[in-house]
Amino acid sequence: MALTDIKTLAQELSKEYNAPNPDLAKCGQYLSKLKIALIELQYLTHEGKHNNIEELTLARDVLEIGAQWSVRTKDIPSFERYMAQLQTYYNDYSELPTSPLKYNLIGLNLLCLLSQNRISDFHTALETIESQELLNNPAIQHPIKLEQSLMEGSYNRVWSSRADVPSKEYLFFIDILMDTIRNEIASCSEKAYSSLPLKDAGTLLFFTNMEDILNFAKERNWKVNPVEQKAYFHSDADERISIPANQIIKQTMFYARDMDRIV
């Protein structure tokens, strides 16, 4: 496929994608066609040297739309693939003009890592961002604040952060994150309370109707007392501390062997 064909195809894609009601399936078709074309020109494998800024920008724009499209179609592995390919364009081609979508997508990537609880990857990704942007860019600040609240345990703030997302793509990941948080809160509550009124449990877990609470309680094996309307958590009092006999034998043998060597 010649370069001009790719250009027209890319234009069609961006027109379709930016339309008020984009046909996502159609976008997907465009994208897979474009990807094949770009591979033929070695834009995705980076084997040849490419210096034509216009062409590079074109390839990058296609990938950016691809990344956003993956979020809309809720396809996380595909989103990660697009992001991995975009990294080269963001980091290694310094002559390329900065894309307006760059930080938005990086922020999305951070949120994506966070929602999968890949905290160490999250922090590694964070280090590659320039400190100026780190402090001032709302798209980056949002996931950072979110991570902080998560680490501290201020789940309230995570919940309220839904209201001020930088772009609507963020919501997809935040919704995933909410499920993770619910489980976090539940496991904290099991340790912190001996019993909890069901209604309060509902507020803590951001549930609004009783049915959801009961289902959730069932999932986590809580004992619900319907008369008192309370959930009881199993106490850890009956846990027994066993003597680590095997380990101690191993250690002692190890000492004996080494002492023998010294003497």
């Binding site: 201020s154 703030r157 809160i185 509550s189 340790k191 912190a192």
Partner: peptide, 17 residues
């Protein structure tokens, strides 16, 4: 110096866990 009582409750619960 936390924002709210609810926050405090979550944070304390997390520290216990």
């Amino acid at each position: 110096h936390l924002d709210s009582e609810e926050d405090a409750e979550y944070i304390v619960a997390k520290s216990i866990r």
